[in-house]
C-alpha cells in the first residue's frame, strides 16, 4: 500500500513514444512493454522524482476520475512498474 509521502523515482531505461503510446525496453527483463493511454501518461509524469500524493492529484485532475478509482489504478500501475524494474518506490 503506497502512502501519500511515498516517492516515485523512474529508473533510467530506454523508452520510445510512438503515436501517443509508450514502449519501454527493460534491460532487466530484456522485454519490451507497451503502455496504454493512462500508463503512458503516468510514465511521462514521473520523469522527475514525485510523491504519490502529487501524482495522484495530477491524475485525478487530468482524467477527471473518482478519487478512489484513481488511487487504486495508480497504485496498481506503479506496482507493475516496480515489478518490471522500471521504477523505485521509497517510503
Amino acid at each position: 500500500m503506497l502512502s501519500s509521502k511515498t516517492k516515485i523515482i523512474r529508473k533510467k531505461v530506454p523508452w520510445q513514444e510512438l503515436d501517443e503510446k509508450i514502449v519501454i525496453l527493460s534491460p532487466v527483463t530484456r522485454m519490451s512493454h507497451e503502455l496504454n493511454e493512462t500508463s503512458s501518461w503516468i510514465w511521462k509524469e514521473i520523469q522527475q522524482e514525485i510523491s504519490f500524493e502529487k501524482l495522484l492529484g495530477q491524475l485525478i485532475e487530468n482524467f477527471e476520475v473518482d478519487d478512489v478509482v484513481a488511487h487504486q489504478d495508480l497504485q496498481e500501475v506503479l506496482m507493475i512498474f516496480q515489478e518490471k524494474g522500471l521504477i523505485e518506490i521509497n517510503d
Binding site: 520510445q16 510512438l18 503515436d19 503510446k21 509508450i22 514502449v23 525496453l25 522485454m31 519490451s32 507497451e34
Partner: peptide, 12 residues
C-alpha cells in the same frame, strides 16, 4: 500492425 506494436516486435 500499429506503430507501437510494430516497434516492439521489431526491437525484440
Amino acid at each position: 500492425l500499429a506503430s507501437a506494436e510494430a516497434y516492439r516486435k521489431f526491437i525484440s
